[in-house]
Design a protein around this nucleic acid. Structure first.
Lengths: 196, 196
DNA sequence: CGCGCGATTGAGTAATTTCAAATCTAGTGG
DNA sequence: CCACTAGATTTGAAATTACTCAATCGCGCG
């Protein structure tokens, strides 16, 4: 597995910061450790932070009327996670965000993020870029859900994010892909059969 | 119907610009008129612009293997539209973007947008904010597609964006909601029956 | 006034879900 | 370190939801 990522290396992929800026940027984040099954965000509470995963695996999900959970986001090392509707607009959350493994995260509060962005142009650019990437990512997900069958969506996940399939239990992957655990199980069985 | 929107009024909803800045911002856009059925973006070509709708209705869609079109975005007055994956990362488009009515749009090129953002902090903030809104919007769409039935998705669209249902033909609405024209027709019929 | 696109209808079908039960697995306490 | 148990996965059969195909209808616009 890769070495533990750092927020400094990450932010440098997007904007060119000098050492002082890097240190300033990083100082807005606080490291938090969470145990498996611990909640970071719960419905009806305002999401006060967004999280950058240093180590571990986290998922965000909503619980529908029929008690099924639907996974909205998955995050492993170097991914961000939060209830963005709640975080960005500081409104009550609709999601649970929960650690799936013992995890180490960097959290930034909404207020500190605002301060960062106000203090330096480049930070604003950085957050603009990750928001654009998030929008593009979500749009690709809309496209796959509109155009592909359950099996195709699973194949695509395996192809593009093979790591994810190993780090999260099957029922989480299934609910992320918009199908039932049982159906994903059948899809996988059929693949085993045809591949050997 | 509301008066024709302006980019000046729109940008002011997000950032506080003085008259000079407003004029500068607006000068990066060019007004274009398109006829019904005219294409703004086509697959395999790089999307060079994003568009702000002043008047009219536009949709973005992908064509799947089986020749079905799947509507990815709808835009009427005061909405933006493009193939964002293509526009933001300047890669070949996968979508058609087509006028559904004769329309008047403001277009900005990728390069001019970069220049704008580099020239003034506030413009960067503006684009960051609309990217965040786009991400949040797309995420809500993912949530509805994961958690709601075809009928519920239609009800939600009618509730939140009643205008859309009037401006676009039924088959476009159906493909936006991830169902067939026939099935949407049946849903509507059933509603008529129960309401009278 | 008729052409062509969009909407509707019906019948049959495919994809996916539901429910219930059996089996496997990993984590926990003794 | 093992046994136990709760959670996770698998399996089967029946039920649902939504789709396909084909035909018909409606109607706006040239």
């Amino acid at each position: 597995m890769q070495p533990t990522p750092s927020i400094e290396n990450y932010v440098r992929k997007y904007v060119d910061l000098n050492d002082e800026e890097l240190a300033h940027f990083a100082s807005a984040f606080k490291e938090v450790k969470v145990k498996k099954r611990q909640f970071l965000i719960q419905p009806n509470f305002v999401a006060r932070h967004r999280y950058f995963v240093l180590k571990g695996a986290v998922r965000a999900y909503v619980v529908a009327e029929d008690d099924q959970d639907n996974t909205i986001q998955l995050a492993i090392e170097e991914w961000w996670i939060s209830d963005y509707n709640s975080y960005m607009f500081q409104q009550p959350a609709s999601m649970f965000v929960m650690a799936v493994e013992d995890s180490t995260l960097l959290q930034i509060s909404f207020e500190d993020e605002q301060r960062l962005k106000a203090s330096n142009y480049k930070y604003e650019t950085f957050f603009r870029m990750i928001a654009e990437r998030a929008a593009a990512f979500m749009q690709r997900r809309v496209i796959t859900s509109l155009t592909m069958s359950a099996e195709q969506r699973y194949d695509l996940l395996i192809e593009k994010y093979p790591e994810m399939a190993n780090r999260f239990p099957q029922y989480v992957i299934a609910s992320y892909l918009g199908m039932t655990t049982e159906f994903l199980s059948r899809i996988r069985k059929q693949k085993l059969r045809s591949k050997g």
